[in-house]
């Protein structure tokens, strides 16, 4: 996993609530057997029409908006446990997703793949949407070390929470398997004592 560094970026706004993983990556694209290339089909049915032509009214097809930060409505990532959703976001180039609420499994999957989900209040979310719709070039700063999100346009900062263990994984670029594997003996002992 690559190390997560402090980031200053423009944002892509998607003010829709309850975006489920079937929208993030429809089931018909789950047939691949590697982790690569899912970004091409991120939000496939919103991005492209039945003839595979980009839909002009979808935000990701609008060159005005770009960046490594996706800002989405409440309850982002609900639905299926498919990790492909996190792979698709990451492969497309999003390092951060901001919402006022995340579905549990998605949050775990995102963190396991170096995508940082930042939960903010409804008001902050509204504020970010308002800023980006007023000025698509508006930037945010994500400082994981300090657990701070800053709206560069206004200078306002907001603290966000992340599990300290997950934080150290992201910052150091290591994953859960490395950690558990270092406990192999304890696991074997547990099995023997049952």
């Amino acid at each position: 996993m690559k190390k997560f560094e402090k980031l200053v970026s423009k944002v892509v706004p998607l003010p829709i609530e309850n975006i489920d993983t079937d929208q993030i990556i429809p089931a018909r694209f789950l047939k691949a057997t590697t982790r690569d290339g899912f970004g091409d089909n991120l939000f496939r049915d919103w991005r492209f029409d039945a003839e595979n032509q980009p839909k002009a009214d979808f935000v990701m097809n609008n060159p005005t908006y770009s960046g490594k930060v996706l800002v989405a409505g409440k309850n982002f990532g609900c639905g299926s446990s498919r990790e492909h959703a996190a792979w698709a976001l990451q492969d497309y180039g999003f390092d951060v997703v901001i919402s006022s609420f995340f579905a549990d499994i998605f949050k775990g999957n995102a963190l396991n793949n170096g995508v940082l989900p930042i939960q903010v209040t409804d008001e902050v979310l509204e504020k970010i949407f308002a800023l980006v719709f007023a000025d698509p070039n508006t930037e945010l700063t994500v400082d994981l070390e300090a657990e701070k999100l800053t709206l560069n346009a206004t200078g306002e900062s907001f603290d966000f929470e992340i599990n300290p263990y997950k934080k150290s994984c992201l910052i150091n670029g290591y994953d859960d398997i490395d950690y558990i594997l270092s406990h192999k003996e304890v696991i074997e002992q547990f099995e023997q004592n049952r």
Partner: peptide, 20 residues
């Protein structure tokens, strides 16, 4: 409960999961 593919790999490798 359901898990993501990284966790599938975790269970394969260690028969354990890291969880809150």
């Amino acid at each position: 409960f359901g898990i993501g593919t990284s966790q599938v790999e975790q269970v394969f490798a260690t028969q354990c999961l890291l969880l809150q």
